[in-house]
């Protein structure tokens, strides 16, 4: 490689950097103008005692130390991770299953697609009423069906062991977005792959395992990352669920005290924005670590049809 070539490479690299930065500049501008101040502020607050109305007072790492001695931080983190683990993955699997069915070129697809998306459009106050009836331990549809086939009939709304599973169950109604996204991904899987596999005598499972799953893996990556970020910040559902049932914040025995709910309460009810900010940054660290973990493994299971 001669010197001229190297200069050429460097020049091209510089040009690519410039063009790249220009393309992402609207986001960069947004970051600098609208996002940086709030983000840095919250970090600064996390090192202070801040009641929201008077200027923050510096306390150093005290808030972070307190986090480790606060059982409710860990309880709420547990409740939240429960939802991530037992909520996110079943919901994604369900969304994929429905998408696979919808992908079979069935008649009336438009109608089905709309139906499966409908629940995400219904306002939460209306949906809550329905939940409360469905989950009613004595008269609810779910327990009625469970009773008929001899399953246990838990007290979904009041038994602290069952409140989170109830929320997971209701969460299936919110899978429309993921279903639609998966469906789109499925429709783009090149058909010739399947035909080639069929010639090789692959069965349905093999085709799914070896063609479908890899082909939609970029969408799965997106769903998993956004799902982790989303469920760990779970807020509205937990709040509404407890409230709709006439329960205090956190639900029976704090079984619905999610991290976001406790954080909200700490900031705006207890007026401890400093401590709440420290909680936020702890959550940030958890989410960040999980995301990096997923991205690092993604090289092994995500395949892009295009480049890079």
């Amino acid at each position: 490689m001669n010197a001229g070539n190297q200069i050429g490479i460097r020049r091209r690299e510089r040009k690519r950097l410039l063009v790249g930065l220009l393309f992402i500049s609207p986001w960069l501008a947004g970051l600098l103008l609208f996002q940086l101040y709030p983000i840095l502020s919250s970090f600064y607050y996390s090192l202070t005692e801040y009641s929201l109305f008077t200027p923050p007072e510096w306390v150093g790492a005290a808030n972070y130390k307190e986090l480790f001695d606060d059982p409710k931080v860990w309880l709420s983190l547990y409740n939240t991770l429960f939802m991530t683990i037992f909520g996110l993955f079943p919901h994604l699997a369900f969304a994929l299953a429905i998408a696979l069915l919808l992908n079979r070129n069935v008649k009336g697809q438009s109608i089905y697609r709309t139906i499966y998306f409908l629940p995400t459009l219904v306002p939460i106050v209306a949906a809550t009423l329905l939940w409360m009836w469905l989950l009613n331990a004595q008269y609810g549809l779910i327990n009625e069906l469970a009773g008929r086939i001899g399953l246990p009939q838990p007290n979904w709304l009041l038994d602290p062991k069952w409140t989170k599973p109830a929320l997971v169950l209701m969460g299936f109604w919110g899978t429309g977005t993921a279903t639609i996204m998966y469906l789109a991904a499925l429709q783009e899987v090149p058909r010739m792959y399947y035909e080639a596999a069929e010639i090789d005598g692959a069965n349905a499972w093999q085709k799914f395992r070896q063609i479908t799953l890899p082909a939609i893996s970029p969408m799965t990556l997106f769903q998993v990352i956004m799902g982790i970020i989303g469920t760990l910040q779970l807020f509205t559902q937990g709040y509404v669920f407890a409230e709709g049932n006439g329960q205090a914040i956190g639900g029976p025995e704090n079984s619905l005290l999610f991290y976001g709910v406790y954080l909200y309460q700490t900031a705006f009810s207890f007026l401890r924005m400093g401590y709440a900010s420290a909680m936020a940054w702890l959550l940030f660290a958890v989410v960040f670590a999980l995301t990096i973990l997923v991205f690092k493994t993604s090289a092994k299971w995500v395949y892009y049809g295009g480049d890079r």
Binding site: M132, N136, A137, Q138, Y139, N155, W156, L157, L158, D159
Partner: peptide
């Protein structure tokens, strides 16, 4: 009581 409560009307 918990069971009774769960079946109470609004």
């Amino acid at each position: 009581i918990a069971k009774f409560k769960s079946g109470m009307g609004k």
